[in-house]
């Protein structure tokens, strides 16, 4: 198999554990690769990677390049950039995808700068299509689709003239395929020379707090916005979430107002969610917020403002004061369940 022109994924790991977003990207890369008729490659950098590498192949990686070094257990920008730039130059992928995490958003621009190629941040969709410009026709171009301008517009960005085309992709927006244990892929260990000068950053301490809120996995989310009015009123949101067995979500405005912690934020700068039920209480429904929840299976909007945009994407709308509506909701659920 020729090694060039693949759809490549930068696989993010910590202590040998692969980030979910990287697996989501491998699934998306499979789809893109079949559209343009190529294979999927991935780059995994770290220390002691055998187990992680073997676990990733069944998601559909044809060629997995690994680079191992004891100084690479955790991400730091300088050595990781050097490795990725060398591997990209050696194998000339046509597309490289990164998770839009703090790591992905740290390394991808450095690589784009070193290779002098385009990079689109925080994509929420990727497609393959044609592009015409000044009489030139480009086939099988990567459409890099992202909200822009505070989420008020959706921009489709292309970078057809230079390879690879690169994008960071939001966590949780691409669907993860089920692994196929019979999938055959190759693990290829790559040598990149690294000296002490390649490690200018030293990680003195690293704390990865357990996320106290699991919005991504929640089936039911009760979210409050600025319309909740106060931290005291926000107790109602907690109470409804508790009654229904759901998690508490929030709009950015509610987080900024101090009603609830940032971990709860849903939307463009928070978490993207797809629960079975999303109850939006006192949330007007800005584009930024909707970008993070509009794929919920069912949406209930509770708002005093009949003109609130949230009603336009809701399945059920209740116009009223949430101080009345939520207690009724709780009472009704307790009576039926």
């Amino acid at each position: 198999m020729a090694t060039e022109n693949s759809v490549m994924v930068f696989v993010q790991q910590d202590d040998g554990e692969i980030a979910e977003v990287s697996v989501e990207l491998v699934s998306k890369a499979r789809e893109l690769a079949s559209k343009v008729g190529t294979h999927v490659s991935a780059v995994l950098v770290g220390n002691k990677l055998q187990k992680a590498a073997e676990g990733l192949i069944p998601y559909g990686v044809d060629r997995l390049y690994t680079v191992e070094h004891k100084g690479l257990a955790h991400y730091t920008p300088v050595p990781y950039t050097k490795i990725l730039v060398e591997i990209i130059k050696k194998h000339s992928p046509q597309i490289v995808l990164y998770g839009a995490t703090t790591t992905g958003r740290d390394i991808a621009p450095r690589i784009a700068s070193a290779l002098r190629v385009g990079l689109t941040a925080d994509c929420t969709d990727l497609q393959i299509g044609d592009y015409k410009s000044k009489g030139q026709q480009f086939d099988n171009v990567l459409y890099q689709i992202r909200p822009a301008f505070g989420g008020n517009i959706i921009a489709t960005i292309v970078s057809p003239e230079r390879k690879p085309q690169m994008a960071t992709v939001r966590e949780g927006v691409m669907k993860m395929n089920a692994p196929d244990p019979s999938f055959k892929g190759e693990i290829i260990s790559e040598d990149v020379e690294l000296g002490p000068e390649d490690f200018p950053s030293e990680i003195l301490e690293r704390v990865k707090g357990e996320k106290s809120v699991n919005l991504k996995g929640a089936q039911v989310i009760i979210a409050g916005g600025i319309g909740v009015g106060s931290k005291e009123n926000f107790e109602l949101i907690h109470e409804l979430a508790h009654t229904l067995g759901g998690e508490v979500g929030a709009s950015r405005a509610a987080v900024d107002a101090g009603y609830v912690g940032k971990d709860h934020q849903v939307g463009q700068t928070g978490t993207t969610v797809r629960p079975k039920l999303y109850v939006a209480c006192g949330i007007s429904g800005s584009v930024q917020h909707r970008a993070g929840m509009d794929e919920s299976a069912r949406i209930i909007a509770i708002n005093t403002d009949t003109e609130a945009p949230i009603f336009q994407i809701a399945n059920y709308g209740i116009v009223g004061d949430l101080k009345e509506v939520i207690p009724r909701f709780i009472k009704a659920f307790r009576a039926k369940a």
Partner: peptide, 21 residues
């Protein structure tokens, strides 16, 4: 600039069949 803006779409709200309760 290697990146080009191909298209810009205004965010359009999907009008679902909402039921008012």
């Amino acid at each position: 600039s290697p990146t080009k803006v191909k298209t810009i779409d205004l965010v359009v709200l999907k009008s679902e069949d909402i039921r008012m309760i």
